[in-house]
Each structure stands twice: as C-alpha cells, then as structure tokens.
Write a protein that binds this DNA or RNA. Sequence first.
DNA 1: ACTACATATTCCAATTATGAAATCATGTTA
DNA 2: TAACATGATTTCATAATTGGAATATGTAGT
Lengths: 302, 302
Amino acid sequence: MLDDIALFVHIAQHRGLSATAEMLKVPAATVTRRLQKLETTLGCRLIHRSARKFELTAEGDAYYQAYAGLVKQFEETARDLSSDVHQLHGKLKVMAPTNISIGLLQPMWSAFIGAYPDIQLELMLNNQVEDLLSSQVDIALRIGPQIDSQLYQKRLGSVATILLAAPDYLEQQGRPEVLEDLNHHRLITVSNLPVWKLQKIKTKASATVNPIAATSVNDIRLASQLARDGLGISLLPVSEVKEELQQGRLEQVLAPWCGPERDILAVWPSGRLLSAKARCLRDFMQQHIQKESILQGRMMVI
Amino acid sequence: MLDDIALFVHIAQHRGLSATAEMLKVPAATVTRRLQKLETTLGCRLIHRSARKFELTAEGDAYYQAYAGLVKQFEETARDLSSDVHQLHGKLKVMAPTNISIGLLQPMWSAFIGAYPDIQLELMLNNQVEDLLSSQVDIALRIGPQIDSQLYQKRLGSVATILLAAPDYLEQQGRPEVLEDLNHHRLITVSNLPVWKLQKIKTKASATVNPIAATSVNDIRLASQLARDGLGISLLPVSEVKEELQQGRLEQVLAPWCGPERDILAVWPSGRLLSAKARCLRDFMQQHIQKESILQGRMMVI
DNA sequence: ACTACATATTCCAATTATGAAATCATGTTA
DNA sequence: TAACATGATTTCATAATTGGAATATGTAGT
C-alpha cells in the first residue's frame, strides 16, 4: 500500500507509467498493475491516461499533494541511512585512550591501517573522555563504564587491575601480607580509580581500601613509572604494566587480590546508523582483543 | 519495502510481533517473515527477539528513530484523506447562486434533503462569488466560467441566455427585426454580462452589442422584473424567466439570436479530496440538471 | 530440573505479484 | 485517410507472499 502510493507519486512526477518504470527499473506491466490496484483500493481513478495523454484526476491530485512531500522525505531518509553503510573507504574518525593505544593496542592500529588501506583513519588519542557527539566521531574505544546514555556500546573485552610495586621498594619497605598492611605503605592512585575496590579471585571476598595520604596522578602511564621508580604501591591495569612485569621492574603484591575489571568498549552515538567503516573497525577491534589474553579479564599469566 | 518499514515501526512500538499482528490484523507468520525480509534487505538485525525478550538492536533503534515520525505522518495523512470519504452523514457546507436556487433549482434542493436526511445540509446562497476556500465550503454550484485556478470543476449543464422584453413595451416601442434595431431601444444589462456577445443558433453568425446608455443592475432577478415592468430589453438566462415567458409577461425578441451559453458547474477546492457527501451532492445535482431541458443549453421550448 | 506458558518461527497449500512478450489504443505524420 | 509510433495494458508462465496449523524456543514458577 505505502509502496504503491510511493509508486503513484513517482508516476505523477514523471508524468507517465513507462517513464516511471524505466526510472525505477521495474517492468511497465508492474507499474500499470500496481497503479490499478491502488486505484481499486482507494476506490477512485487517480490518473486519466492513454497512450498520448496523461492527466491526474481531481482525486489523483489530492492524493499527490498529500503524499508527495512525505514520499520524498521517506526516500531522503532512506538515502541518508544507507549512504555510507556499504562504503569501506573514506574518512573514519575514531577516539581512543592514549595509553593503551600507544602501548598494548598499538599493533592493532597498525594492523587495521594495513588491512584497510582505503579507510582514511583519523585517530584521536586522549586520556580524558571527550564528547563524542560534538566531536563528530564515528566510533570510540573506551575503557571502564560509560555513563552517557546517548551512546551505544559493545563490550570488546576487559582488563584486570592489580596491585604492583617495584622490587626495590618492596625489599626496603617489606611485602604486604594482608590488606591492612597497605596502611603502612606509600600508595599511588590514578584519578579515575580514587577508591580501590579489591576482590579475591577465588573466594569473591571483597574489600575497599581508601588510599588517603597517597600520591595522586591523572595518568596511568605516569603512575606506573612512579611505581617503577620505587615510589610506592599502585593499582594499575595489567595491560599497562605487561612489559614491566615481564622484565621484573614491577612485581605484583597481595597476589590473591585484584582490583576491578574494567570493560573495554566500543561506543558510538545512539540513534545514528553505524557506518560500514565503523562497524568494520569495531569488529576488527573485537577480533584483535579476543586474541589478547590480557584483555579477556583474566589475571595475567606470563 | 516501505510497507515493511512501517510494519517494523509498529513492531517496535508494540514491543512484540504477535501484539503487532493482532493490532494490524495480519497473521503472526506474516509479521515474522516481513521483518526477516526487511532485516535481510537492510543487511542487519533490527530486533533481538525471543519468546520472552524483546529489544531493538542499535541498528533497529537507528532505523526506528529515523522512520517512526514519518510512518506516523503517513498514517495520519491516510486517515485524514479517508475519513469522510465513505461517510454519508454529517455536515455538508454548500454555496450556490441565490436566484437559480430559489427558482428553477429549488425542487432539487428539496429533493436532495429528502433523499439524504442524514446529510446535514448547510446551504449558503449568494449572488456574488464568495471565496470558497476561506469559507470552508465543501462544494459549490456556480454559473458561468470560474477563473480561480485553485478550484476543480465539473460541468453539470448549461443555460442559454436570450433577449427579452415585456409585450407592452414591444407594442409601444416596436419589435426589433435586426440587431441594429437594438440601438433604438432601452436596454437593461446585468453586471456580469456587460457586453452582449450574440450568436445565431443555426448559422453560427456572431455579433457583439455594447449596450452603452443602458440601465445596469447587479441582479438577474431585478433585471427580469424591470424588463417585465416594460423598462426595456434585457439579455437573461432562460432559467430565470421560464415562468414569465410561459405566462406571457415577457417575450423573446430577435428570436434567431441568443446570448452566450453559461456553464453550470460544480466547483470545489483543489488539492483536497472530495468527501463522499460532496460527491453525492455533485452527482445528485448532475442527475437533476440532466433532466431539466432548460439547463441543457438548448433554447427553451415551452 | 521439570512444567506451563507465551511468543516466535517454520511448513504447506493457496493466493497473489512479477517479468517478458504480445496486444491494444490513440494521437501524429505522410 | 492510412500507416506509424508511442505508451498502456493484457497474457501466461514463474516466482514470491500469504494465512493457518504445527512446531520450536526461551522464561518463570513450581
């Protein structure tokens, strides 16, 4: 019915059935029959037509005037939605956290750029959460819960946080055995984790540590460097300290405890259709992150 | 396609396929399949659905937001157009010329009111052409050419105009034999026929008379009364002078000549669908006028 | 874990729409 | 006036869609 109305509007615009048939790539027979069907359902003739004449009836004109604008809007909407949806080339604006992007995930970005040379990636790295909507970003990678209800999100993985310190530091200050021992240590906090909600992996026992007199910085990388320099114990995502752990510059403390798992999310503005490029990147990221055991929420096993 | 989109919008609104099926009176199987087809054509899933869960996907939400308003508008338009189109009761506002309506066509109005008692006729008689659009009139009866391009019209009949005078007057002033004789007579003109374009019925010969020093009035009825009172010769529609001719109070002069035929038209605002009531009246008027020989353009034969 | 329930989906026969070619209708030109 | 050309319509075989019944699926309450 709606389709037939749309067809009629086109017929009225092209002033002819065969012209419309050609334009819309449907056989003329179909145009004739659908118009006839519409006329039957509406119970009136819409077009006075013959081989050489074409004229809307009064009713046809009324229907045309009523529907033409709507049909046009419909088609514009369809065009807006589907443009871009199949194109795997052109610009793609992406936001991501700096630290993980120049660290653990740097190979992912290289791989993506290599795999899709036609996609012109514009990667905006930043540690603070910038507004996705006003920045006209297609899709963003985010870590930790996202509060913006204007965003859609898809979980790609998660990263555990653990307590760490430099071996030197631990030699000098002693290794904490129980949670309460933390009170006697220098602590380094990162601003987005001001309170340490810890949990024992097996027993699910949980506890909260409020690092009061701690050093506080707003960058994970800096925090890990401070810890590495023997300035205290910090709660950091394993993704950021992989190298340091492997090379023994940092070591885990209070091993049965670990901090909150932080989700890794692809987020994008809601109410807008994800472009093919953005979907492509999202799926690519998901595949990559799935292979990275550190990003599966498991405690790192070296 | 458009129909499927509309269906999807309803599904999203009713939050369920079967609810939608019931609401729209289509089998649930159809709803399922049309949704599946739409998902296939769009190339993405629109709804995460199971027996107990129902949730739009990100894409589904994007499509919903894009189309919901349009679908609603479409349906409102359809409702506006079809309301009234099948209802043969309620108010019907009609305009018509005063003279013919209280004269020759008066029986027609009575007959219509009698035939359709459920139609609440509001008949606005006037001799001047009032604006149909601003008066919210459904349909109007008009005589003579209508210039307003915002109107649709349908010809219902036509009425001839002839030259007439009172027998008394002709006795005193003499009966004109040729056109030029009119120059020596008193003439009465009606404002909507300031120039007399005359024609011989058989020979098609035509002539124009410019009644200069004539009495001029703006109402046909008054003109016929003036002529009846022996004040001169006038060019009048036969429909207005039927009685006077039959009773010998007026007689035709220069019989082979007659004035322009004036069309009787049903007119209504363009771009709006004629309601069933208005169509009903239009067709009723056409039938009635067809039976009235005076209104078939023929010279009156008593 | 099992059952009951509500909902979505699949199956099959009947209907309906489609596409390509032939036919028809009607203004225009020779 | 007849032939022509253009565009609408019909024809017929094929493909797609529909409606009703049966089936599958997932959730909530014993």
